[in-house]
């Protein structure tokens, strides 16, 4: 009997040991590694991109030791909530829907969404205003888009603001196809399986540049409303594990640390510098 008790105890001790890294002070930041130029992987498998470099800058400012881990996009938020890591920096826009389950730092960069088609598409000549802010009302442009997209098949990555927008009914009923990664969206756009795709404008320009495929941006750029308010660091809500517990306190502190670090990085021009390096223009906010 005692032996069994000992065995069970040692199993628990072992489990505690292998899971206890979540209590260590090392901050684990997750990124997708498949959404260039925000975050991607180099040929030798290393994580690179705007957010990977920004994460290192922010960690330096916070004085935390950090590791950057890779996580598939569709499990990003659930895994954060299960404490597999402490923060998300993966081109994730700050939206009300996500705020119900996690919290965000202040935004560090603006994501501008756009539609893209292949050269020669009937949508290429789509005439609209240049930029649409859904929070400010854009009935006329949305109406133009509704007519243009009627009966078209649109590809998006699953669980993104882009998918939410297409399914919100703002542009009528369109055939939405969802993909696990942006790479696959690009492949099917080039193959002609989908008529048009919606994602961050830079995701398309990056693909066009690297693959040499004639992908062109059409229609307005989108912001506001379903598109959220910029990209921020996704963090656990302090209350998820109880604000008075050690875990909850640590989560709350991390939010403060990130906000402070982002402020500092913005003021000393570090965010702008990295944005220009990776996007070609200043997307900082």
């Amino acid at each position: 009997m005692i032996r069994i008790k000992k065995l069970i105890l040692s199993i628990f001790a072992f489990l505690f040991l292998i899971t206890s890294n979540t209590y260590a002070d090392k901050v684990r930041i997750a990124t997708e590694g498949a959404y260039p130029p925000w975050n991607s992987k180099s040929a030798d498998g290393k994580l690179i991109g705007f957010e990977v470099e920004l994460a290192n800058v922010l960690c330096g400012y916070m004085g935390h030791e950090c590791t950057i881990v890779e996580q598939d996009w569709d499990g990003m938020i659930p895994a954060l909530r299960m404490r597999k890591y402490d923060a998300i920096m993966a081109g994730m826009s700050i939206t009300d829907e996500r705020k119900k389950v996690i919290t965000f730092s202040q935004g560090y960069a603006d994501e501008v969404a756009s539609l893209a088609v292949m050269k020669g598409s009937s949508l290429e000549s789509l005439k609209t205003v240049e930029a649409v802010n859904l929070s400010k009302g854009a009935k006329k442009t949305l109406k133009t888009l509704t007519t243009a997209l009627a009966g078209k098949t649109v590809g998006v990555q699953v669980g993104t603001i882009h998918q939410n927008f297409l399914e919100s009914g703002d542009v009528g009923k369109v055939n939405v196809r969802t993909y696990k990664t942006q790479d696959e969206v690009n492949l099917d756009l080039a193959a002609g399986r989908i008529d048009v795709a919606l994602a961050a404008a830079v995701a398309f320009t990056d693909y066009a540049e690297k693959s040499g495929k004639p992908v062109v941006l059409v229609g307005p750029t989108f912001s506001g409303g379903a598109f959220g308010n910029g990209v921020g660091v996704g963090l656990r809500q302090e209350a998820q594990f109880g604000s008075s517990t050690a875990m909850g306190k640590r989560d709350g502190q991390l939010l403060k640390d990130f906000n402070k670090a982002i402020n500092k990085a913005r003021k000393d021009g570090k965010i702008s510098e990295l944005a220009i390096k990776w996007f070609g223009f200043d997307a900082s906010m």
Partner: peptide, 22 residues
């Protein structure tokens, strides 16, 4: 579901992407 078909797994994943309840 990996090739955009909305089968049982595909829809389950889709619902998770909006409810975050895997």
């Amino acid at each position: 579901s990996t090739v955009t078909l909305m089968d049982l797994t595909g829809v389950a994943k889709f619902i998770i992407s909006t409810t975050f309840k895997p």
